[in-house]
């Protein structure tokens, strides 16, 4: 699903964010990416959906060779990847259903499929009854559920999440984690950067720890390992 071979990333200002990353993530895996602030977790994740390009090294995602991928083809890569962020990234003037539908509309999905799939996605995250409310009328947890619904509505093989529970209280965070677990149960690969020690140590998965741009630990059913 994802393969990195000696990947390096330098930002235009000169900062080296990744220093020789090699890793393989198989189909259907659930992976936490942990590490101190500024270690390079977000950068590691951004390479996967081609938000950033590697400076050196080889990188394959969903069968796409990211090095060779033309700008024009990036949308094709992203249509098979769902992304979820700490700040939800919902459009404030659209309803929950419209926010989810937006992701399908802008990639040219025929209208007749959109309704059905939006309904399914909202049911999947348990918010079918709030379909017509706007983000401002929803709690943080509900907003994140909408964002998750938007990420899965196109049935991607890979979900990438950057601190999806970063803005949520513990109870709400668990609700979101249960969603990710169910998505993973369907066979979808999940890569999640997180600072949430309780979650990593309870819902045990593969843990990749990054420090100063290098992978310092990679273990199945690993622990969080930091005390921040």
């Amino acid at each position: 699903m994802i393969e990195m071979q000696d990947v390096w990333k330098q930002y235009p200002n000169g900062t080296w964010a990744l220093n020789g990353i090699s890793v393989r993530i198989g189909k259907g895996e659930f992976v936490y990416v942990v590490g101190p602030s500024g270690a390079g977790k977000s950068t590691f994740i951004k390479l996967m959906y081609r938000e950033e390009r590697p400076t050196k090294g080889h990188l394959f995602v969903n069968g796409f060779n990211i090095e060779r991928l033309k700008d024009r083809k990036v949308p094709l890569l992203r249509r098979h990847i769902g992304v979820v962020f700490q700040d939800f990234k919902l459009l404030p003037n659209l309803t929950a259903a419209e926010n989810v539908a937006f992701a399908l509309e802008v990639i040219g999905t025929p209208k007749k499929y959109i309704r059905r799939r939006v309904k399914d996605a909202l049911e999947w995250v348990g918010l079918a009854d709030k379909a017509d409310l706007r983000p401002a009328q929803l709690s943080g947890g509900e907003q994140q559920r909408i964002a998750v619904a938007r990420a899965i509505v196109n049935n991607p093989q890979l979900i990438i999440a950057d601190e999806p529970t970063g803005n949520l209280d513990p109870d709400t965070s668990w609700g979101i984690m249960k969603l990710f677990q169910r998505i993973n149960d369907r066979g979808t690969t999940i890569v999640m950067a997180t600072h949430n020690r309780e979650i990593v140590n309870t819902l045990r998965k593969r843990v990749i720890a990054i420090e100063a741009g290098c992978i310092v630990r990679d273990e199945d059913k690993g622990m969080y390992g930091y005390d921040d």
Partner: peptide, 17 residues
């Protein structure tokens, strides 16, 4: 800009944007 950002993330083509 927010809409544009999301469109890019979910895979809208450049010309669509």
């Amino acid at each position: 800009r927010r809409e544009i950002e999301i469109m890019k993330l979910v895979g809208a083509t450049d010309w669509f944007i």
